[in-house]
Amino acid sequence: MHALGLLIAGMSALSYAALIVVNKKIIYTGGMQTASIELDVAAIVTCVYVFWISSIPSIMENDIPYLVTIGVVNTGLAYFLYFSGLQKLSGQSVALLSYLDPVSALCFSAFLLNAVMTPLQLCGAALIIGGAILGEWIDHSS
């Protein structure tokens, strides 16, 4: 519970909320254009941060295929699908679905990597899933 960590977490939450709000206002671009803009901005911010914290990182030649795969498939394709769907869903649905991201990370690490889930993680996952279900149920009943 360091103050800097809490500050960075708060800034991250505000940035994510701003991302959702701004992307709901974008109506003249498709998913590919929106994903491209978001990835360009993220690359610029990341490069500025990395160069501020340290020097230019060295990249070995055999690292390039892995970097391209992570950049194009894992990030580019995922962002394209995310921003394509983001423009078609309500803000509440997007927010509720985004809460499932940490739960899926826990489940994938448990099933694929044989990671042990602690009782606190299980409790958090149950609260997230319960909140998402409750939020959707209230949304559909009104």
Rank of each mutant, 00 (worst) to 15 (best):
H2V: 01
H2C: 01
H2A: 07
H2P: 04
L4K: 06
G5N: 12
L6Q: 03
L7Q: 11
L7N: 09
I8F: 13
I8A: 11
I8V: 15
M11R: 00
S12R: 03
S12E: 02
S12W: 06
A13P: 11
A13R: 06
S15H: 03
S15D: 03
Y16S: 12
A17G: 11
A18V: 03
A18I: 00
L19I: 04
I20S: 09
V21D: 02
K24V: 08
K25A: 14
Y28V: 08
G30L: 09
G31E: 00
M32I: 15
T34F: 01
A35I: 08
A35D: 06
I37G: 01
E38D: 09
L39M: 15
L39I: 13
V41C: 05
V41A: 12
A42H: 08
A43E: 05
I44T: 12
I44A: 14
I44S: 07
C47N: 03
C47Y: 05
C47R: 02
V50C: 05
V50G: 08
V50M: 13
F51C: 09
I53T: 06
S54T: 06
S54E: 14
I59K: 06
M60P: 03
M60I: 01
E61L: 11
N62T: 05
D63A: 14
D63K: 05
P65Q: 04
L67A: 02
V68S: 02
T69K: 00
T69G: 04
G71Y: 10
G71T: 06
T75Q: 10
G76D: 00
G76Y: 02
G76N: 01
A78Q: 08
Y79G: 03
F80L: 13
L81C: 14
L81V: 15
Y82M: 09
S84A: 12
G85N: 14
G85M: 13
Q87D: 03
Q87R: 15
K88G: 00
K88I: 04
L89R: 14
S90T: 13
S90C: 03
Q92Y: 07
Q92T: 14
L97F: 14
L97D: 01
S98L: 13
S98F: 10
Y99C: 11
Y99G: 10
Y99L: 13
V103A: 12
S104G: 00
L112C: 10
L112Y: 08
L113F: 11
A115S: 14
T118N: 00
L120A: 12
L122R: 07
L122M: 15
C123I: 05
C123D: 01
C123S: 10
G124N: 04
G124P: 00
G124M: 06
G124K: 03
A125C: 07
A126M: 12
A126Y: 06
L127W: 08
G130W: 04
G130L: 07
G131Q: 07
I133G: 01
I133T: 04
L134H: 04
G135K: 04
W137K: 05
I138L: 12
D139K: 09
D139S: 12
H140A: 13
S141L: 13
S141P: 02
S142M: 05
S142W: 07
